[in-house]
Amino acid sequence: MTIKQRTFYILRTAIKYVSLLIITFISILPTVSTVITAFKTKEEYGSTNVMTLPKSWTYLSNFVTAWKDANMGLAFRNTFIILVFVLLGSIMFGAMLAYILSRFKFKGNELIRNLFLFATLIPGIATQVTVYQIMHSLGFINTMHGYITLMMGTDVISIYIFIQFFENISLSIDESAIIDGCTYYGVFFKILFPLLKPAIITCMILKGVSTYNEYYMSNLYLQNKSKFVTVSTSLYTFTGPYGNQYNYICAGVIITILPALIIFILSQKQIYSGLTQGAVKG
């Protein structure tokens, strides 16, 4: 390498790592400042700058207060129940529909695919005006089963992930099973469904993240917060009387982020590949 090339190389590497450090700083700054404040006592919060580190990293009383006041025990229990049923339902129904659409030729196949695609263009939150009326007439307001049913419906992305996946599974597997006397149900449940595992993991991640973080509809349809609070709506507790007591608020925020962080650290690779697959739908 000539000297010129060498200086150029060093300069390029320097620019690379400096820009990476800048973006990392920006990415973690809001979260880090939240963590710092969550460990401060009330007096400390009032008297020190927000970026001054707390005196003690073992001062957990804010977390305890936030957990109790926002009823987070119940919130985590409810969110867990919702997650289990929503994931179960949307994966089962998504896989079943995808099986029919990818394996059976019939009039209306294309129409049904388009119906699902077209539905994604309807701005979701905008239709809540009329969805609310429908939920009301079904007696679904303030019920877990109502909210779960709503969240299960119309999950187009998972349907498309499953369709894509089915199209990569050879038809000869189905055919030989049918010849061996297997019914269509048998083919689906015993043979194809186990093969779907990677697609199921992808859908679980995508749907799991969106269900865990969903707050708009849970706020609208699970208004009875003393009974049906979820992890995200539990944070609404901090809007009223807490005003600017950010040491409690930050502790609450950290509690809700923590599970997402743990899952993320444990399954980074699956999350990335899930997102990439989910993006190339249609």
């Binding site: 990415s27 865990y212 973080n213 995200s232 944070l235 997402a260």
Partner: peptide
């Protein structure tokens, strides 16, 4: 770096 840049995506809107 990839992880820290990506993580904000997993934080809920209300948080």
């Amino acid at each position: 770096f990839k992880g820290t840049i990506f993580f904000p995506y997993l934080i809920s809107g209300i948080a």
